Simulated scan of single mutants.
Amino acid sequence: MLHGHDKLRSLFAMLAERKPPVRQYYRTPYLTDMGEQVDFAETMELNDEGLIQWHHVYWGWFGFRVLQRNEYHS
């Protein structure tokens, strides 16, 4: 469990370092470079105090295959 922005920033920095080579960042006016895209949706349900009660991440097929091949640990 992480508390605070500083802890989250360090987590995101670690995740960025472990990004597999197949994952690339693209910026175009149309949100695609006509290549494979890692698509996912992330949802959270918060309680009355603003705390996360449910957290769901839904991966598309390309991102799912990246996870399936364990490319984050390669």
Rank of each mutant, 00 (worst) to 15 (best):
W61R: 08
P29T: 14
P20W: 04
W54Q: 12
H73T: 14
H5S: 12
E45M: 14
L67N: 09
G63R: 00
Y30I: 11
N70F: 10
M14Y: 12
R69C: 07
M1Q: 11
A16T: 08
S74R: 10
L11E: 00
L2C: 04
H3G: 05
T43F: 15
V38L: 06
P29A: 15
H56Y: 12
N70A: 14
V38I: 05
P29N: 12
P29Q: 13
M1W: 08
Q37N: 05
R27C: 05
E17A: 08
V22D: 02
N70P: 02
Q53W: 04
P20T: 04
M44K: 13
W61T: 06
M34F: 13
L51N: 10
M14G: 11
Y58G: 02
W59N: 03
V57T: 06
H3M: 07
G4Y: 05
A16P: 04
M1C: 14
M34P: 05
D39T: 05
K19R: 08
E17I: 03
H3E: 07
W61G: 01
R65D: 14
L46C: 10
P21T: 02
S74V: 06
E42R: 15
R27T: 07
D39A: 12
T28N: 06
G4D: 02
R9C: 07
R18K: 14
R18S: 02
M1A: 15
R23D: 03
E36D: 11
A41F: 12
A41R: 11
P29E: 11
G63F: 03
V66C: 05
M44N: 07
Y30F: 15
Y30D: 04
Y72G: 04
F62R: 09
I52T: 11
T32V: 00
M14F: 06
V57M: 10
I52C: 09
M1N: 11
V57H: 01
D48S: 06
H56M: 14
D6T: 07
H73G: 13
F40D: 01
L15M: 02
G50N: 01
L31P: 00
G35E: 15
